[in-house]
Amino acid sequence: MTAFIIRRLLQAVLVMLVVALIAFLMFRFVGDPINQMVGIETTPEQREALRVRLGLRDPILVQLARFIWNAAQFNFGTSYQFKQPVSEMILQRMPATLELSMVSAIFALIVGIPMGVYTGIRREAWLSKLFLTVSLVGISLPPFLIGILLIFIFAVNLQILPSFGRGQVVDLGFWSTGLLTVSGLKALILPAITLGLFQLTLIMRLVRSEMLEVLRTDYIKFARARGLTERAVNFGHALKNTMIPVITVTGLQLGSIIAFAIITETVFQWPGMGLLFLQSVQNVDIPIMAAYLMLIAFLFVVINLIVDILYTVVDPRVRLDGGAAV
């Protein structure tokens, strides 16, 4: 087991290195940062001087080595456009993104699981079909349009929810939270729904199909035969069994929720990392882009590692990767 974890850790490090390499190579080709750093009247000589000072004229390998060495220390330098340390900026923006992602994941779970259970148990009920169809509509529209329509309805026409931002945030020193004020909570509603809708559908359908499978197993048939109530069977036994895949999938989806927050954050001007990243793409702010990518990669690798380890613990039938090749 320990050997397995160590091997996976080493692999994770390798993955991070490869990501760093890819990120670095790609950034070599994304636009010219100089134009974004200076005004339009800056002379060519001044531009060239800046390029040299930034190290953009050094040999590629030197630039790469410098990049990886710095990245390992979570030092991504200074943002071209904001002239602030990137790691600081990312850390400042992280709470906003993580709160939004967590809340929408919880929203998706709280609404998605009961809907999934219901549609699994009552396959033929009209309400089940309604749930299934409506949830499909939710993923049949591009998220940005859903966001704009929500703003249109709830902010502009009904004027009951804010159209942008996080509302009043409370600074806890290391973390700025919008969960402690009324305006902060109100500001979360529309973005969380926009972001969570896709996951909701996913979870609902996953729970449904798992329920369908579990309900057919001998184990459940025995439970029924033992005379347990329908309720006890459904929730005590069947649902419990569906939870492992649901939690795994949600865990794995967390990374993509964070990434998809880019769109939600853009539509709602949510001051998180995704918005920062998109702006940095538009402004070719390479240090921010690099830091964001590496952070997302890191989150993914960690989540993957945990899921892998949980898998082997939960289900010993799963062969340890690379352990037994034929």
Binding site: S163, F164, Q279
Partner: peptide, 18 residues
């Protein structure tokens, strides 16, 4: 001062009185 990049959101924030 708040930056709002999306045109629709910016207009919505004014129309809604925020």
């Amino acid at each position: 001062l708040t930056p709002i990049g999306s045109d629709a959101t910016r207009v919505a924030a004014l129309l809604s009185g925020e």
